[in-house]
């Protein structure tokens, strides 16, 4: 799920940036530092949408670095248990398949794949229904439900299932070609 929230961070700025564009430099550095990171609490920071407030800088003794407390608005993405996501399959093996929805890695184990889908090894490993009408392989887009999340300080990993109503392949790259 996406959230638009305000976060705060202490930015350290190198003295070489001090000058007329200090503020721009600060924001650019903030974006570089923060976007794409993950915090266990808030999830992935997708994008910074604005800077609310930059506090008074504090010059570090000895180094000359300045620390600015910065408040910024950002969009974060945090997967939740029970959430339905659309994801792209990245790898298929006998144990199930991996997919990713943006920065989030999701594993769907083979017992959470409908029973009528069988693993087919070969050049392009895939899960296929007995009549061959539905195929899950690399680059397939699937809609899945998250049934568990493991949130580390820097990473969020999810377990998903496609064994439920309206879940499964939503576009098949093989068919499109």
């Amino acid at each position: 799920m996406f959230f638009h929230i305000v976060l705060e961070r202490n930015m350290q700025l190198h003295p070489r940036h001090f000058g007329p564009h200090l503020r721009d430099k600060l924001v650019a550095k903030l974006m570089k530092d923060v976007e794409g990171t993950c915090s266990g609490r808030h999830g992935f920071v997708v994008a910074i949408t604005g800077v609310e407030d930059i506090g008074k800088g504090l010059i570090r003794e000895g180094t000359g670095f300045v620390t600015f407390p910065v408040k910024y608005q950002c969009v974060v993405f945090r997967p939740f248990k029970g959430e339905i996501l659309e994801a792209v399959v990245t790898m298929v093996n006998k144990m199930g398949f991996f997919a990713e929805a943006g920065p989030v890695q999701i594993f769907v184990s083979n017992h959470l794949i409908p029973d009528d889908m069988e693993f087919q090894s070969g050049d392009v490993p895939n899960y296929t229904t007995s009549d061959g009408s539905v195929k899950i392989q690399k680059e397939s887009e699937v809609r899945l439900k998250i049934i568990g999340t493991r949130v580390d300080a820097t990473e969020i990993f999810c377990i998903g299932t496609i064994k439920d109503d309206f879940l499964g392949v939503i576009s098949d790259p093989g068919a499109a070609v």
Partner: peptide, 25 residues
């Protein structure tokens, strides 16, 4: 019955170490 909402566990037959699907990566 549908093994819904269950996180699969894996076990190493040699050293009996257990893993959950969260370790899959």
């Amino acid at each position: 019955l549908d093994s819904r909402n269950t996180v699969q566990h894996y076990i190493c037959p040699n050293c009996k170490k257990r893993y959950s699907a969260f370790d899959a990566l």
